[in-house]
Amino acid sequence: MDLTLSDEQQDFRRTLRSFLAAEAPTDVIRELDRTETFPADLYAKMAGLGLTSMGLPEEYGGTPCSEIDLCIALEEVARVGACLSYALVPTLTFCGRGIAGYGTPEQKQRYLPGICSGEIRMAMALSEPEVGSDLTHLSTRAVRDGDIYVINGQKVFTTGADTADYLLAIVRTDPDAPASKGLSVLIVPRTAEGVTVRPLPKLAGQATHTCEVYFSDVRVPVENQLGELNAGAKIVFGLLDGERVFVGAQCTGIAQGALDLATGYAKERHQFGKPIIEHQAVGHLLADMAMDVRVARLVTWEAALLLEQGRPCSTEASVAKVTASEAASRCVSNGMSVLGGYSYMTEFAMERYWREVKLYEIAGGTNQIQRNIIARSL
């Protein structure tokens, strides 16, 4: 298994890093989060660079790329700021892929060109107040009324819902079927009558809100059903392997950002007559950080290769998600130690990395659930 990047991939990383350094430096991300301003201009610029079309079908404006290419892009975006990841990832790697993989020709033509151009954003409406890890027991209902579905219920942790154009919602369409057999996926316009969105205050990435969504007699046409009736669990769980791989990529990006910041600081900061990187205690922290970055990247790319080949990768995706998220958490914690008191200052990105990284032990299925998946494979 060759994980050596090609010259083109290395050029892509350099180009993207340079672009983000110019357009989204730490002070810009900090101000976006402080004011809770959605990064619409940055999103449009990322779309212009082709990020919103990566991996989607060419005939709808997509850009062919490998899963490693996409991991590189998500690493670099997460390295800059979670609010950009939260804006990009749900639309691109879950909703866009869901429509590309399960949508009708009409749905693909209607939504994918706008997703690829950056003009359409979507949010994942999956979790509910009483349903997170056990998604199959959700209670949001969609009742057929002629050519219309009438939706009632509530979703939570729906990131980007207040600025999205559409919500990709999993709902119960057959209350008499076994829990996992009576679910369907609907594409719901965010501005549909009866949809109410409420942003939730949170720890990090405030520029892209995470929201509660309420459905009160929301009417959507049957043609907005994604995939087959009552096949929603298969669709969502089929997309979750990819989501976990891409969580690994985002974690790798945060860890890399923390390592870069800590290393640069340690070379410039002098104590006891020499740069602190020359003190063994600090050097060992940086060595541990470097090892965590490398392990996170390798397990993520291994899972990404299997995903690209269309091979089963649920276990590998879970391994990548757990390993990368926990490695990134250790890495950022060590970075806080290297920066010392300055790690607590918002002038530096380290305190933001520290706040951002915890989510990834939860998002995409908690690490405890991932360990269940891994254990069942043994």
Rank of each mutant, 00 (worst) to 15 (best):
135 L>P: 00
105 P>C: 09
256 Q>P: 12
226 L>K: 08
73 A>H: 04
48 G>L: 08
149 Y>S: 04
315 T>S: 11
181 K>F: 12
212 E>W: 05
366 T>N: 09
331 C>W: 00
140 T>H: 02
155 K>I: 11
84 L>I: 15
260 D>Q: 09
271 Q>N: 11
172 R>C: 10
271 Q>K: 13
80 V>R: 03
227 G>C: 08
183 L>G: 02
139 S>M: 04
314 S>C: 11
78 A>F: 00
312 P>H: 12
329 S>Q: 15
334 N>K: 08
57 P>T: 14
298 L>E: 06
91 T>H: 01
79 R>S: 02
377 S>D: 14
373 I>D: 07
247 V>W: 01
171 V>M: 00
256 Q>R: 14
248 G>E: 02
223 E>T: 15
341 G>N: 14
70 L>Q: 03
194 G>D: 02
330 R>W: 11
86 Y>H: 10
86 Y>L: 13
296 A>S: 08
38 F>V: 10
161 A>R: 00
367 N>Q: 11
165 D>H: 14
90 P>C: 12
346 T>D: 09
148 I>R: 10
84 L>S: 05
198 R>T: 15
26 T>L: 03
47 A>K: 07
141 R>K: 15
219 R>P: 12
263 T>Q: 07
85 S>H: 09
216 S>P: 06
84 L>K: 05
327 A>H: 04
228 E>R: 14
284 H>Q: 14
321 K>H: 11
25 P>Q: 08
286 L>I: 15
147 D>S: 14
213 V>I: 10
256 Q>D: 09
311 R>P: 01
356 E>N: 12
208 T>C: 10
271 Q>L: 14
19 F>N: 04
254 I>T: 05
255 A>L: 09
287 A>I: 13
59 E>S: 15
52 T>P: 04
290 A>C: 09
85 S>A: 15
316 E>L: 12
230 N>L: 11
94 F>S: 03
338 V>I: 12
309 Q>P: 13
210 T>C: 09
369 I>Y: 06
54 M>V: 07
209 H>L: 04
367 N>S: 13
50 G>R: 03
264 G>P: 06
142 A>Y: 01
37 T>R: 01
225 Q>N: 10
312 P>T: 13
39 P>K: 06
357 V>I: 14
174 D>S: 08
16 L>C: 00
99 I>K: 03
195 V>W: 00
265 Y>W: 13
359 L>W: 00
170 I>W: 00
267 K>R: 15
283 G>I: 08
230 N>G: 11
90 P>W: 01
242 G>I: 02
107 Q>Y: 04
296 A>Y: 03
306 L>I: 09
125 A>G: 06
19 F>T: 04
22 A>F: 08
38 F>N: 02
292 D>T: 14
79 R>N: 05
145 D>Q: 10
6 S>A: 10
121 R>S: 05
243 E>P: 01
167 L>K: 02
358 K>L: 08
350 M>N: 05
377 S>R: 15
319 V>K: 04
64 P>K: 11
173 T>N: 08
266 A>K: 00
367 N>Y: 06
3 L>K: 11
340 G>R: 04
355 R>S: 12
224 N>H: 13
333 S>L: 14
166 Y>W: 12
93 T>E: 07
143 V>A: 06
300 T>L: 09
322 V>N: 00
322 V>A: 05
78 A>Q: 01
243 E>Q: 11
102 Y>Q: 06
288 D>R: 14
